[in-house]
Simulated scan of single mutants.
Amino acid sequence: MAITLTESAAKHVTRYLSNREKGVGVRVGVKTTGCSGLAYVLEFVDELAAEDQVFESRGVKVVVDPKSLLYIDGTELDFVKEGLNEGFKFNNPNVASECGCGESFNV
Rank of each mutant, 00 (worst) to 15 (best):
I3P: 07
A2E: 09
D73H: 08
N92Q: 03
V62K: 01
V60K: 04
L38S: 09
N91H: 13
S97W: 04
V63M: 05
E21D: 11
V107E: 05
L17P: 13
Y40P: 15
K31L: 12
K81V: 14
S57C: 08
L5G: 09
L38R: 15
S104Q: 09
G59T: 10
H12P: 11
R20M: 11
A96I: 06
K11R: 15
S57L: 01
S104V: 11
V26T: 06
S36H: 15
E43K: 04
Y71Q: 05
V41R: 12
E82I: 11
E56P: 00
L69Q: 00
E86K: 13
D52I: 00
Q53K: 14
E76L: 06
D52V: 00
P93D: 04
L69D: 02
C35H: 14
V30K: 13
A10S: 12
L5P: 09
C99N: 09
S97R: 06
T14C: 03
V28D: 00
C35Y: 15
G102Y: 02
T4S: 12
G23Y: 08
L77I: 15
S104G: 09
G100W: 00
L70A: 07
E76D: 01
D78K: 07
L42G: 05
K67N: 08
E51K: 14
R20W: 03
K22A: 05
V13M: 05
S68V: 03
V30A: 08
K11P: 08
P93F: 02
S8H: 12
V64T: 02
A49L: 15
D73S: 12
A50D: 15
D73R: 09
F55M: 06
A9M: 06
P66D: 01
N91T: 01
L48H: 09
K22L: 09
G87C: 08
K81W: 12
S18L: 06
A9H: 08
A49V: 14
D65V: 01
R58E: 11
L77G: 03
D52L: 00
I72G: 04
R58V: 10
T32G: 06
N19C: 04
L42M: 15
V54S: 09
E76P: 02
L70N: 05
L48N: 13
G29S: 06
R27V: 01
Q53D: 03
N85P: 01
V80Q: 14
L38V: 11
V63Y: 00
T4C: 04
S97M: 04
S18N: 13
L69V: 01
C99M: 09
R20K: 13
V28W: 02
A2H: 08
A96H: 07
N19A: 11
T6Y: 00
F79G: 04
A39M: 15
E103C: 08
V64W: 00
N19Y: 11
S36T: 04
A50P: 14
K11W: 08
Q53I: 09
R27D: 02
T4W: 02
S36A: 15
D52K: 00
N92V: 00
D46H: 10
S36M: 14
L77M: 11
D46T: 14
